[in-house]
Amino acid sequence: MTGTTVAEVMAELAALDDPRARAVNEKHGDDHGVNLGKLRAVAKRLKTRHDLARELWATGDTAARLLALLVCRPKAFERDELDAMAREARTPKVHDWLINYVVKKSPHAEDLRVAWSADPDPVVASGGWALTTERVAKEPEGLDLAGLLDVVEAEMAGAPPRLQWAMNHCLAQIGIEHAGHRVRAVAIGERLGVLKDYPTPPNCTSPFAPTWIAEMVRRRES
Results as ranks from 00 to 15, higher is better:
residue 22 R to Y: 05
residue 68 A to M: 02
residue 169 H to T: 02
residue 18 D to E: 06
residue 64 A to H: 01
residue 142 G to Y: 09
residue 142 G to T: 10
residue 214 A to W: 06
residue 6 V to K: 10
residue 82 L to D: 02
residue 131 L to Q: 04
residue 180 G to T: 05
residue 187 A to G: 10
residue 7 A to F: 14
residue 31 D to R: 10
residue 134 E to G: 03
residue 213 I to Y: 03
residue 199 P to A: 04
residue 18 D to K: 01
residue 43 A to N: 03
residue 182 R to D: 12
residue 52 L to S: 01
residue 15 A to N: 11
residue 44 K to S: 06
residue 139 E to I: 13
residue 60 G to I: 03
residue 139 E to P: 11
residue 42 V to P: 02
residue 122 P to Y: 08
residue 63 A to Y: 01
residue 140 P to H: 14
residue 37 G to S: 01
residue 98 L to W: 07
residue 170 C to W: 05
residue 176 I to Y: 03
residue 118 A to R: 14
residue 91 T to I: 00
residue 113 R to I: 15
residue 155 E to W: 06
residue 67 L to T: 00
residue 44 K to D: 09
residue 122 P to S: 11
residue 26 E to H: 01
residue 87 R to V: 01
residue 193 G to F: 15
residue 98 L to A: 08
residue 158 G to M: 05
residue 145 L to Y: 12
residue 134 E to S: 05
residue 69 L to F: 10
residue 33 G to C: 02
residue 166 A to K: 03
residue 217 V to H: 03
residue 193 G to V: 13
residue 102 V to Y: 08
residue 222 S to G: 13
residue 209 A to R: 00
residue 175 G to K: 08
residue 60 G to W: 03
residue 153 E to Y: 00
residue 93 K to N: 06
residue 125 A to V: 07
residue 15 A to P: 01
residue 84 A to R: 08
residue 65 R to K: 07
residue 107 P to H: 14
residue 209 A to D: 09
residue 180 G to N: 02
residue 101 Y to S: 11
residue 7 A to L: 15
residue 163 L to N: 02
residue 149 L to P: 02
residue 143 L to Y: 11
residue 22 R to I: 05
residue 21 A to Q: 12
residue 18 D to Q: 05
residue 120 P to S: 11
residue 211 T to H: 13
residue 104 K to G: 01
residue 142 G to E: 08
residue 176 I to H: 02
residue 183 V to P: 00
residue 83 D to G: 04
residue 19 P to N: 12
residue 89 A to M: 03
residue 99 I to L: 11
residue 173 Q to M: 13
residue 159 A to Q: 08
residue 92 P to N: 09
residue 12 E to F: 08
residue 182 R to F: 14
residue 150 D to E: 15
residue 106 S to A: 10
residue 28 H to L: 09
residue 198 Y to D: 12
residue 73 R to D: 02
residue 216 M to D: 14
residue 139 E to V: 15
residue 176 I to E: 12
residue 191 R to G: 09
residue 155 E to N: 05
residue 33 G to H: 00
residue 2 T to L: 03
residue 1 M to K: 03
residue 211 T to R: 14
residue 203 N to V: 10
residue 139 E to D: 15
residue 180 G to E: 09
